[in-house]
Design a binder for these strands. Structure first.
Lengths: 188, 188
DNA sequence: GGCATAGTGTACTGATCAGTTAACATAAGG
DNA sequence: CCTTATGTTAACTGATCAGTACACTATGCC
C-alpha cells in the first residue's frame, strides 16, 4: 500500500470534482484530467462514490488544518481568533478558482440524508461547530455552543454570498456581524 | 399560447428538480414523472437549461411572494417583520420535503458565473437583499444595506444548517442573532 | 532467471444522456 | 368536411455514463 499514486489520484480528483461538480464529472473525463488510468482508479476505489468519499475526507483535513492554523496566526486571543476566521475566509474567497464550499455542493448533489456523501458533509460542519465552541468557551462565553452556532451561520452565509457573488465583501460583512455577536456574548 | 400545459410542466419539473437535482434528473425521467411527453416538453423549451430557467423563475416568484406575505402576517412593524422572517424560515424548514434552497443547489451544479442558471440564482438573492434593505430603511436603520446583508448571511447560513441537519433549530439560532444585530443597528 | 506488484491502454458491457423524427389522436373553428 | 393547434406514443440518433475484461509493461525483490 504505497501512498503515492492513490493519494495523487484523490488529490487530483478533489480538484476536478470541485471545479466541475460531481455528477458532471464522468470517470472517463476524470481519468483524462488526472492522467491516471481508469483501471487503476477502480483498483483503489470500487465505485465513484467511494472516490468522492475519499476526496471529501481529504478536503475536510485540508480545510480544517488550513482554517485553524490561519486563525491562530491572525488572532492572539480566543476571541481574536474567532474574529480572525473571517479574515481567513476573505483570503479564501479571493483565491483564484474559489467555487464555494465543497461540502455544500456535495450535499446539494447527494441530497438523501442517509447518503454517505451527505453524511460526510454534515459531519464536516459538525466538527467545525464543536471546534468553534471550544474556542468560544476559552473566550469565556456563557453559552459557547450557542455562540458557535451563530458564528457558523455567518460563515456559511458568507460562503454562499461569495460563491453567488451577490455582495462585494461578504467576509467583512460577516466579520462586522460577528463582532457584534461576540460583544453580546462576551461583553464589550 | 394557452397557459395550462406549459405551466403544469414547469410546476412539476420544479418539484422533480428540487427533489432529485438537476444533472441527476434526465429528460426521460422528467417526462415519466410529470406525465408530459418529451415531445411536448421540447415544443415549449428547446433545451433542458431553458426549462430549468423557467422553473427557477417560477420558484423565485413563489418563494418571494410566500416569504414576504408571511413576514407581513407575522410582524406588524418593519423591525418585527425582519425578525419574523426567521419564524417563516422555521416553518419552511419543517415542511415535509424540505431540501434546502433551490438556487443554492442550482448555483452549485452550474458553477460558471456566466451560466444563465447561475446568474438567475444570483439575481434571486440580490432581489431578496434589496427587499430586506427597503424594510430595514423603513425600520430606521442608519445603514439599511449593511443590515440587509447581515440578515441575509444569517438566512443563508440557516438554510445550509437546516439542509445539512447539523443543528437542531437553525432558524431560531438565526433569529436570536438577528435580534442582536437589529438592536445594534436600530438601538434598543 | 523467476515472480509478484503496480501500473497502463483499449475495447467492451448495458444503461442512460439530450435531443429528433415520424405517425397518430383529439378537439375546436371555419 | 377540412384545417389547424395541441397533444400523444415510440423508436431513433450519437454521445456519454459507471464499471469490467484482457493483454500488456515496468519495477523491484528473492
Amino acid at each position: 500500500m504505497r501512498p503515492s499514486k492513490r493519494d495523487e489520484l484523490v488529490e487530483k480528483a478533489l480538484m476536478v470534482f470541485y471545479r466541475h461538480g460531481f455528477h458532471a464529472t464522468g470517470m472517463d473525463k476524470l481519468a483524462a484530467e488526472t492522467g491516471i488510468s481508469k483501471t487503476s482508479m477502480y483498483k483503489y476505489f470500487s465505485t465513484k462514490e467511494d472516490l468522492i468519499g475519499a476526496a471529501l475526507t481529504l478536503r475536510d483535513k485540508q480545510f480544517r488544518s488550513w482554517l485553524f492554523r490561519r486563525m491562530e496566526q491572525l488572532g492572539s486571543t480566543p476571541r481574536g481568533q474567532l474574529i480572525a476566521m473571517f479574515d481567513g475566509l476573505k483570503e479564501w474567497f479571493a483565491q483564484e478558482g474559489f467555487q464555494g464550499c465543497m461540502f455544500m455542493k456535495a450535499a446539494a448533489e447527494y441530497q438523501k440524508s442517509t447518503d454517505p456523501i451527505h453524511m460526510k458533509s454534515a459531519e464536516h460542519k459538525s466538527i467545525l461547530i464543536s471546534c468553534f465552541s471550544d474556542i468560544a468557551q476559552r473566550a469565556g462565553a456563557a453559552d459557547p455552543d450557542a455562540l458557535a452556532r451563530r458564528l457558523m451561520l455567518l460563515k456559511e452565509g458568507a460562503i454562499v454570498a461569495a460563491q453567488l457573488g451577490i455582495t462585494k465583501n461578504p467576509a467583512m460583512d460577516a466579520k462586522a456581524a460577528a463582532k457584534i455577536l461576540l460583544a453580546d456574548a462576551l461583553g464589550q
